[in-house]
C-alpha cells in the first residue's frame, strides 16, 4: 500500500477563489447588516398601540361574527367567485393562442417577439397596480376586477405554456412533420398531447391564485370579498373581518386540495 497519495480532500471554493476576497465580502456584509439595523427608526409608542389593536383583532378572530354582516359577506363572496371563474376561463382562452405564438420552435420570429412582449407586459405589472388603473378607468366594482385577473392570467398561463412547448420532445414533432402534416395538424397531433396535462394543471392552479388575488384587489376597489373585508376593517368590525378571513382561508384550502386531486387524476 503506497502512502504517497493524500488522505484528505476538501471541495475547492467555486465562486470566489481568492481567500482575501471571501473574508472582505463576509466582513462587509456584517458591517452593512449592523448599520442597517441601526438605521431602523422604531416608535415604541406606536408599536404598543398597534399591539393592543392587534390583540383586539385576534380576539375578533377567536369570536368571528358571521351573522351581522352576512348579506354583505355573501354578496362579496359571490362577486369574488364569479370574478375568479370568468376571468380564469377568459384568461386561459386568450392565453392559449398567445402561448403558442410565444413558443420559439413553432412560429416565425416576428410573431414570437410580439407574443413574448404581450407576456412581458402582463407579467411586469403587479395585479394591484393593474387593478388601480382599471378601477380608475372602469369605476369601482367587480368588472375592473374581472379585467385585472384576466390580464394577469394571460401573462401567467401564456408564459408557462410557451416554455412548456419549447421544451417538448422535438423528435415527436419531427415525425409528424415528416408525414406531410400542416401546421395546425402538427399542433394537434404532436404538441397538444405533450403539453395538455400541464396546461390543465396550470389552469386549475391559476383558478385558485385568482381567487386569492380577488380578495387582494378588492381592497383597491375592484369589488368582491376584498372590498367587504376592507369595509369591515375600516369600521373596526374585527369580528366580521375575522369571519371573512376564515371563509377566504376555507375556500382557498378547498380549491387547493380539489385542484391538486384533479391534477393527480389527470396524469
Amino acid at each position: 500500500m503506497s502512502s504517497q497519495y493524500p488522505t484528505t480532500w476538501r471541495r475547492p471554493p467555486q465562486v470566489l477563489t481568492d481567500r482575501r476576497w471571501r473574508i472582505a465580502l463576509q466582513v462587509g456584509l456584517l458591517i452593512y447588516l449592523v448599520l442597517a439595523f441601526g438605521s431602523i427608526d422604531v416608535n415604541w409608542q406606536r408599536v404598543s398601540e398597534g399591539l393592543e389593536r392587534g390583540q383586539r383583532f385576534v380576539m375578533g378572530f377567536l369570536q368571528p361574527d358571521f351573522m351581522s354582516r352576512w348579506r354583505d359577506i355573501s354578496q362579496g363572496l359571490i362577486e369574488s367567485l364569479t370574478m375568479t371563474l370568468t376571468s380564469s376561463v377568459v384568461g386561459v382562452m386568450i392565453s392559449v393562442p398567445i402561448g403558442i405564438g410565444a413558443a420559439r420552435n413553432l412560429v416565425p420570429r416576428p410573431v414570437y417577439l410580439v407574443c413574448r412582449s404581450i407576456v412581458a407586459v402582463s407579467r411586469s405589472l403587479q395585479e394591484v397596480i393593474v387593478a388601480i388603473f382599471l378601477v380608475a378607468m372602469f369605476g369601482f366594482g367587480p368588472f375592473a376586477g374581472f379585467l385585472t385577473l384576466t390580464f394577469a392570467t394571460i401573462g401567467f398561463i401564456a408564459k408557462l405554456l410557451a416554455d412548456d412547448i419549447e421544451e417538448i420532445d422535438e423528435t415527436q414533432a419531427e415525425a409528424i412533420r415528416a408525414t406531410g402534416a400542416s401546421w395546425f395538424q402538427l399542433l394537434n397531433y404532436a404538441i397538444q398531447p405533450q403539453v395538455m396535462p400541464r396546461l390543465v394543471g396550470l389552469s386549475l392552479y391559476r383558478l385558485d391564485i385568482n381567487f386569492r388575488e380577488s380578495a387582494v384587489i378588492g381592497i383597491v376597489g375592484a369589488g368582491g370579498i376584498g372590498a367587504t373585508l376592507n369595509t369591515a376593517i375600516d369600521r373596526y368590525e374585527y369580528d366580521s373581518a375575522g369571519a371573512i378571513l376564515l371563509i377566504v382561508i376555507a375556500i382557498v384550502m378547498v380549491a387547493e386540495y380539489s385542484s391538486s386531486y384533479l391534477r393527480k387524476f389527470l396524469q
Binding site: 415527436q172 415525425a175 415528416a178 406531410g180 400542416s182 397531433y189 398531447p193
Partner: peptide, 21 residues
C-alpha cells in the same frame, strides 16, 4: 412540400411516436 412529404415515409431512431396518443 406537404404533398411530396407524404410520398416519403420515415422511420426514426427513438421511434418518435407521440407517446400520449
Amino acid at each position: 412540400l406537404r404533398t411530396q412529404r407524404r410520398r416519403i415515409g420515415m422511420i426514426f431512431q427513438e421511434y418518435s411516436l407521440v407517446e400520449r396518443l
